[in-house]
Write a protein that binds this DNA or RNA. Structure first.
Lengths: 304, 304
DNA sequence: GGTTGACCTTGACCCGAGGGCAGGGTCGAC
DNA sequence: GTCGACCCTGCCCTCGGGTCAAGGTCAACC
C-alpha cells in the first residue's frame, strides 16, 4: 500500500478511450510489444518479469546506464536482484534510492559523501548539507575571481598594472623600438612575479628617469650598442656615463619602503636584471661594467 | 640589457648596511651558504652554475615542483638545459614563460589551450579569452544553481514541493503513523520523479479526499490491515468500500490536463503504485482487489 | 530458423590538473 | 661518514563518469 487515497486506483488514470488505453498500457495477453515514439524504441514487456531493467531505471532517473553501474560500484546503490539472464531488476525501493542519490548528486554533493548523508539523522544531515553548501560557495567565489582575472587579461596577456603599461607606452612615444619595448614588458612581468613589493617603487623611478633627456639618450645608445663589437672601447665610456647619470640621483636607488628581503632576493633580482642579456654580449658587458662602477661608488649591487 | 634605466644597477638595491647586504646576497667567495627562515632551508649557491633549479622556479612562480614537471610533460614549457647532474636549469626566459602560463592557468584557461593561446596574435588571443570567459560563466551559473538546489534540500532531503509537504503534515495531524507518513513521502518522491506532470493534479485530489472523514477512516483501516491474515474476508469488504468511496467522486480519477502519455507510463505508474506493497501481503491483495473493482466499474487501470 | 537491432553484462582505459609515493641520485653542511 | 634537503623518473590515484571492446539475451521480422 503506497498511496493514501485509493492504494493504486486513485491516481490519475481515467483513460476512457479503449484504444488509447491499450496504446498506453499494453495488454497482458499479447506479451512483448514495441512501439516507436520519435525514433526511440521502448520495450514494455520485460516489466512483467518483476522490476525494471537498468536502462529504464536510468531513464526514469534521468541518468545514463553507466552512471547507475558507477553508483553500484561505489556502493552508493545496493545491487538489486538479478533475473535468470543475469540482468539487474530494479524495484521501487531501488529506484527511490537512485532518485535520492541523484537529487543530492545534482545538488553538488560529492558521491563519496552521499551514502553517509542518506544514512544520517536529520540534524547531521542538515549540518553536512551546510558544509557542502559552504564548499560550493567557496568554489563559486574562486571561479568568479578567476573569471575576473581573465577579464582583466583580455587587455594585456601579461597582466601588468596600468602604471606599467603607461610606462611602456611612454617608451614607445620616446622612440624606443617595438622589440626593445617588448623586452621591457617581459622584464616587468618578471619583476612583478619575482619582486612584487618593489614594483611600485621601481615604476616611480622609471617614470622620473624617462623625464631626463640625457638618460633617455644614453639608453638609446645602449640599445644601439647591441651591434657593436664586444671589445669596442665605447662600451666602457657608455657604462661610465650611465653610471654617472644614475649616481646623480642616488635616492632613486634606495630600497623601497616595505621591501621584504628574503634569502632569494639576489637570485630574483639577477633573473630580472639579466633578462635578455644573452641577446647581445655587449649588453652583458655593459651591464657588468655599470654594476662595477656603482659598486665602486659604494652602491651595493647583488652578485648572484 | 633588461631594464631601461640602468641595465641592472638602477633597481632598488641601495642596501647601505654591509652586514645586511651580505645577509641578503651572500658572497661570491664563500660558495654555498644556507640560511634558515621560518623552518625552511634555501640554497643560494647553485645559481652560480647558471640558472635556477626547478624548486626555485616553482617557488618563484608560486606552484609546486610537480606542477612544473607536469607542464613540461604537456609541452607547455620547453625542457630547459640540464647541468652536469641532470638537474634542470631555468633561465629568465623559462621563468617568464612559466609565469605567463601560470597567469593564464590561474585565470581558468585549460592547460590544453594555453600553448596555442600564447602563440596566437592579439585578436585571436582576445577572442579565445572571451570564449574561455563564457565557459567559466556557464560553470558558475551551473554551480550557483546547484547550491540553490542544495539550499532548498536543507529542509527536506526529498526535495518535495511545499504543497506535498503540507499534505504530509496534514496526514500526521489526522493521526497517521510516522512510518506510514514516511512511506507516503517516499511514494511522493517517486511520483515527482516518474510522473512530474501529474503531481499537481494528484496533490489536489489528495487534499480533497483528506477532507472526507469516511475516506480517512477507510485508509486508517487499510493501514491497520497490514497485520491481518492474508485471507481475511474483511479485506474484500474493505476493498469494496474503498472502491465505492473512490467512485463517488469520479472526476478526481480523471486524467490531468497536460499529462504526457509515453510508452512507459504504465511502468512508471506501477512503480509508484506498488511502492512498499511488499511490506505486507494484505496491502498487495487490497490493492489488487480495489483495482479489480474499479476496472469492473469501467475505470481503466494499468496492469503492467 | 536465421537475421536484425536494441538492450544487457563485465572489464579496461580515458579525461584535468596535478598529488602521492617509491626508489634512487646529488649536493652541501656538520 | 652521515644527515637532510633537493633532484630524477615512473607509476598509480583522484571525480564523475564517457568510451570502447567483446560477448550474451531478447523480441520482432522474414
Amino acid at each position: 500500500m503506497t498511496l493514501p487515497l485509493g492504494q493504486g486506483a486513485h491516481s490519475p488514470c481515467d483513460y476512457s478511450e479503449p484504444a488509447l488505453l491499450k496504446e498506453i498500457f499494453g495488454r497482458g495477453s499479447e506479451h512483448g510489444s514495441r512501439r516507436r515514439s520519435r525514433g526511440r524504441v521502448e520495450t514494455v514487456t520485460r516489466n512483467r518479469v518483476g522490476g525494471i531493467t537498468i536502462g529504464q531505471a536510468a531513464a526514469f532517473a534521468g541518468v545514463t546506464v553507466k552512471t547507475v553501474r558507477h553508483y553500484h560500484r561505489l556502493g552508493l546503490l545496493a545491487e538489486p536482484r538479478r533475473d535468470s539472464s543475469g540482468y539487474r531488476r530494479y524495484g521501487s525501493d531501488d529506484l527511490l534510492r537512485l532518485v535520492q542519490v541523484r537529487t543530492l548528486a545534482t545538488a553538488g554533493v560529492p558521491l563519496s559523501e552521499i551514502a553517509s548523508l542518506l544514512g544520517a539523522g536529520p540534524e547531521q544531515f542538515a549540518a553536512a548539507l551546510a558544509d557542502v553548501e559552504r564548499r560550493l560557495t567557496d568554489r563559486i567565489t574562486d571561479l568568479v575571481a578567476r573569471r575576473d582575472a581573465l577579464h582583466r587579461l583580455a587587455d594585456d596577456r601579461a597582466l601588468l598594472p596600468d602604471r606599467a603599461l603607461a610606462v611602456l607606452d611612454r617608451m614607445t612615444e620616446l622612440g624606443f623600438s617595438p622589440d626593445y619595448v617588448a623586452g621591457q614588458r617581459e622584464a616587468l612581468v618578471l619583476f612583478r612575479a619575482l619582486l612584487p613589493e618593489g614594483l611600485d617603487h621601481f615604476l616611480t623611478s622609471l617614470e622620473q628617469r624617462l623625464d631626463d633627456p640625457e638618460y633617455v639618450d644614453l639608453i638609446k645608445r645602449s640599445v644601439a650598442a647591441a651591434s657593436w663589437e664586444p671589445d669596442d672601447p665605447q662600451i666602457e665610456e657608455l657604462a661610465r656615463a650611465i653610471a654617472a647619470n644614475l649616481l646623480a640621483d642616488r635616492e632613486l636607488l634606495a630600497l623601497p619602503a616595505g621591501f621584504r628581503i628574503g634569502p632569494d632576493t639576489a637570485t630574483r633580482y639577477g633573473l630580472v636584471d639579466h633578462h635578455r642579456e644573452d641577446r647581445s654580449p655587449v649588453w652583458a658587458r655593459l651591464n657588468a661594467l655599470i654594476q662595477a662602477e656603482l659598486r665602486s661608488a659604494g652602491v651595493p649591487v647583488p652578485d648572484p
